[in-house]
Write a protein that binds this DNA or RNA. Structure first.
Length: 561
RNA sequence: GCCCCCGUAGCUCAGUAGGAUAGAGCAACGGUUUCCUAAACCGUAGGUCGCAGGUUCGAAUCCUGCCGGGGGCACCA
């Protein structure tokens, strides 16, 4: 409808003197229902160009539009306030649109703005050094939902997990496992205490910055069960590293499965070394004049892009910092030809990604195709107290622990109900409250309620087999619900473009509210057959939107609660 | 010191890329079940949109400066 009016208004303005050629009318849905179903501020914006009062312009536009607009779609056009032009939809438009919605069913809401272009969403991307934390959870759920949104808006999406199993972290991980293993082999192995505030007793060979989580001991135990003492004689940490990586990755994948996440591709940073890509990229950057040597290290001239300091790409030890492989990785993504790439980072990466984008740009790729979403930190609150989290120390709450407490549906919803760039306060007490206070249940309950109504309606003899006469849906609550449902495709589009899934969550609440009002005012059982049939179909339409919306968010839509 | 995010009701947050009377959930108070799921619904109360300027027909929204909270500024990842 917006497109239709936009088209008509543009055609009209094109014939009007004084209207700039690049003028783009804006439409919005008024907050007050009495202001109509759609409004444009075009007359106010044109006032300056035309040197006339906004209301005068609006009056002329309304007269001209009334002559050319299809009365089956637009029932009324009027001037209001300081010069708004308000449009009121015709009932026939609403019923036609509702019929289209019902026909689309599970596909309602899908649009084709992406036109089948490829998109890559990279998310989670945690190195296999331990179980996923709550912080990873926000990343995972956001990334997965962006991927869903891109799919629903017509993109061909690849979900990718980037990881590094070769760095210092992994070495420390292997050493941590080895130390635990050696203690199993020799129970009398001397111990020591590490940690500042709350010292922990560990076996003597344990690295100072080792991983203290209980899962390390589990992995060591598994190795001991399988190999006995056979691994004790060698200093080689490779078998420990390998065992740890495999065990941890298996756990990470299991955690992601619980959240409904399945990756298409895993990209190992190591492959960038095997293919020599890292060094090729370094030389390419050098050729462009952005790389120099100093103090034994190799530097990236980031001051050329307005940064205060240059950045090290290769340490004097000859080992690259992570920034170089990051640039190589993103260059690789660009070369794979995706029309759009999305990265999801925690707030602690905020200072580093501009270097990567600049690097990619210097290499001749278009950095505007890469969209970086930065999400702020998650704070867990329990009993009004903040829960501390740290990966290395064993004090963190894992994502699995969280899902054990509050279910995967609630976990996903809480991560999605707020804008990514605000700090997220995750109130465990509220989330665990498996009842009235919890917003996710409100949506699921509305969905289950529709199912219940439809079961009941069929029990008393009404049927979806009959063609409904949707023009009978003239009650205020019916019209309001239909209008709300028709916003769905646009909501998905905007949420996808802006990478703001909370818009979908908020919208679904509005749908549930509109449905509740319809439920209150308009009964089905007990009504005459034609009206009951029409209302059944409207209820079904509401269910379609709720279910499709929840599907985009990755949350289940139960038939019964 | 520099960079990023945030500051809206008692609490947690929305506010549709500048629009009409700033909204929701929770908490508080009151009401609604012979009637399709009360995990629901209806109502009351609660605000100088951090502060001060500026831009214009019009600012919670854009610009500048302060104040406050969080995060980041390694030859760590």
């Amino acid at each position: 409808m917006k497109d239709y009016l936009d088209h008509e208004l543009r055609a009209l303005l094109a014939e009007t003197d004084g209207v700039p050629a690049d003028f783009e009318p804006e439409f919005s849905t008024p907050a007050q229902p009495e202001h109509g179903d759609l409004a444009t501020n075009a007359a106010m914006q044109l006032a300056r160009h035309l040197r006339r009062a906004p209301r005068q312009i609006a009056a002329d536009v309304v007269t001209a539009l009334q002559a050319r607009v299809d009365p089956k779609r637009i029932a009324a056009i009027e001037v209001a306030g300081p010069g708004f032009i308000n449009f009121r939809f015709a009932d026939t438009y609403l019923t036609d649109a509702l019929a289209t919605l019902l026909e689309a069913g599970d596909d309602y809401g899908r649009t084709n703005v992406g036109q089948g272009q490829t998109a890559l969403v990279e998310y989670v991307s945690a190195n296999p050094t331990g179980p996923l934390t709550v912080g990873h959870g926000r990343n995972a759920v956001l990334g997965d939902t962006f991927a869903n949104l891109l799919e629903w808006t017509g993109y061909d999406v690849t979900r990718e997990y980037y990881f590094n199993d070769a760095g210092r972290q992994m070495r420390v991980l292997g050493e941590s496992v080895r130390a635990r293993y050696l203690a199993l082999v020799d129970p009398n192995l001397p111990t020591k205490h590490i940690g500042d505030d709350t010292p922990v007793e560990v076996p003597q060979p344990f690295p100072e910055d080792g991983y203290l989580g209980g899962y390390i001991s589990d992995i060591a135990q598994a190795l001991f069960d399988e190999h006995g003492e056979a691994l004790a004689d060698t200093d080689d940490i490779a078998p420990f590293k390998k065992a740890a990586q495999e065990a941890i990755f298996a756990e990470i994948e299991a955690t992601m499965r619980r959240l409904g996440i399945e990756m298409d591709t895993y990209f190992n940073e190591h492959s960038l070394y095997e293919s020599n890509k890292v060094w090729d990229v370094l030389e390419a950057l050098r050729d462009k004049g952005y790389v120099y040597e100093a103090d034994g290290a190799t530097w990236f001239k980031t001051t050329a892009f307005g940064k205060e300091q240059d950045t090290v790409l290769v340490k004097s030890s000859g080992e690259p910092t992570y920034r170089l492989p990051d640039i190589a990785y993103h260059a690789d993504k660009c070369e794979r030809g995706y029309a759009q790439m999305v990265d999801i980072f925690g707030a602690d990466h905020i200072a580093t990604y501009p270097d990567v984008l600049k690097g990619v740009e210097v290499l001749g790729h278009d950095p505007s195709k890469i969209e970086v979403v930065i999400y702020q930190f998650v704070t867990l609150v329990r009993g009004g107290q903040q829960v501390k989290m740290s990966t290395r120390k064993a004090t963190y709450e894992t994502l699995d622990d969280l899902m054990d407490e509050v279910t995967p549906d609630v976990t996903r919803f809480f991560f999605l109900m707020r804008s990514p760039n605000t700090h997220l306060e995750f109130d465990l007490d509220l989330a665990k409250e498996a009842s009235d206070k919890n917003p996710v249940y409100y949506l699921q309950y509305a969905h289950a309620r529709v199912s219940s109504i439809m079961r009941k309606a069929e029990e008393v003899g009404f049927s979806f087999g009959e063609a409904p006469d949707l023009s009978l849906l003239v009650h205020e609550s019916e019209a309001a619900l239909i209008k709300e449902l028709l916003h769905f495709p646009e909501i998905l589009q905007k949420a996808s473009e802006a990478k703001e899934p909370h818009r979908v969550a908020n919208y679904l609440r509005d749908v549930a509210v509109a449905f509740s009002q319809f439920y209150r005012d308009c009964h089905i059982v007990g009504e005459a057959r034609p009206l009951a049939t029409a209302r059944m179909n409207l209820a079904k339409a509401a269910q379609i939107v709720l279910r499709n919306g929840l599907t985009v968010l990755g949350i289940s839509a139960p038939e019964r609660m």
